[in-house]
Every structure is written in structure tokens, then in C-alpha cells.
Design a protein around this nucleic acid. Sequence first.
DNA 1: GCGACAG
DNA 2: ATCTTGTCGC
Length: 231
Amino acid sequence: MIIHDAHSWELDVAGAQEVQRQLAQKLRLQVPGDFRLTSLCGCDVSGAKNDDRVYAVAVVLSYPELTVKEVATAVCPATFPYVPGLLSFREGPPLLKALRRLRAVPDVFLFDGQGLAHPRGLGIASHLGLLLERPAIGVAKKPLVGVYTSPGPEPGDTVPLVYREHQVGTVLRTKRGVKPVFVSPGHLMDFDTATRITLACCRSYRLPEPIRQAHHLSNRLRRGEKISNIY
DNA sequence: GCGACAG
DNA sequence: ATCTTGTCGC
């Protein structure tokens, strides 16, 4: 898919934070009127201690079958350290490289991290959703900001994630007896739709299938294992 | 100043 | 996140 270059990635911490504040003003937390869910794209990046490269994967799944339709990968040297709040500056470049190799244009993108639930309202799902100009959702295993209580025990039970007096996400129980996940809208997305799509993509596991697949494939890519792109 | 801190 | 062994439960 075609993705326009919007800004430099070669920035220091202060410069990256300024870019986030500027981009956050462009976020649209509403689903397009013609939105139809037919395909989803899971995005994830893996890396290792003695390896300064990052391994990105974008995997497209059909909905509601959730079968893999296409896989795109990219390997890049890591150009930015992991700094809480600046994850997209480390994982964004490799993910965009992989996404540009995608033939399909998925209806929605799921990222392993936050969307709105971020110190400046621009987690990786919001940042990349804006650059892609497509609906995006952040699904994180742990919160970055915000306060919350424990959601009920049943799959689908939720509680709001609140930061500075406002809801920034939803704590969602995807599976009984398992820790909840932290869902937040990225771009062209709202709280309810983000939560419902995430839950609809959960099968027998805690994480939604697009992200599970992306996670699995990025690890295989790093280990040099074969990844078939013919489905 | 101290603690917290997506992946 | 990664590293890394065993352990608990379906």
C-alpha cells in the first residue's frame, strides 16, 4: 500500500515529543461512515539483545474467518532506543517499510501498544494510523498511563481507562481467568468499536488473532525461519 | 527528589 | 522486549 512520508524520524527525544504533540492535534476519534470490516492487519516488531536490527511484520487476516491472507516483512537497523512514550520512533520505520510492501489495503490496523492512552495522546497506533490515514487500534498488554479498576471475569467485561480525568482507553477481559488487555483507539476509531473489534478477534487466547500472528511471525523472521506468503 | 514507565 | 527453567492446568 502507498504511504506518504510525513516527517523525519531522525530526531532526538525533545524533537520526537514535539512531533507527537503536533500530530495528536490531527487525530480523528470517529469511525468513517463507510467503514466495513472485511480484513484486518496485525503489526508487530521483535528484536534481540545482541542484534541491533529490528524485525517487522504486517499480517493481513480476513474477517470474520480470521485466516491469514498476506504477510509482509522488513528488517532494519534500530535507529532509536526504546523510550517509554516514544515506541513509535523505534518501531514505526520498520513497520512502515513492511506495510509499503503490502498489496492489500486492510480495513483496520491493530498495533501491539497504545493508541490514545499515551502521555501526549499519540501512541504507536495513533501515530501510524495517522500516517496510513486508515482506522487503527492499539492493543497493549500493560498500561502506559491511566488508572482503572478490575473488569469483571467474563470475556467482554470492560472498565474505562482514565487519564487526567478523561477516558483514554478500555481495559478489556478477553478470556476468563486471564489478565485483561488495554485497548485504545488509534485513529479514525472510537472506544466502543475498538473494543468490539478486539474482542471479535479473540479466539482461544488472550490477544486478538492479528496481533498474535504478527508476534509469532516477527519472532520467526528474527530467527531466520521460513515464512510462507502464499495462503 | 522519588517512583512509574507500551515494546 | 529479551533471557530463561520449571511448574501448573486443560
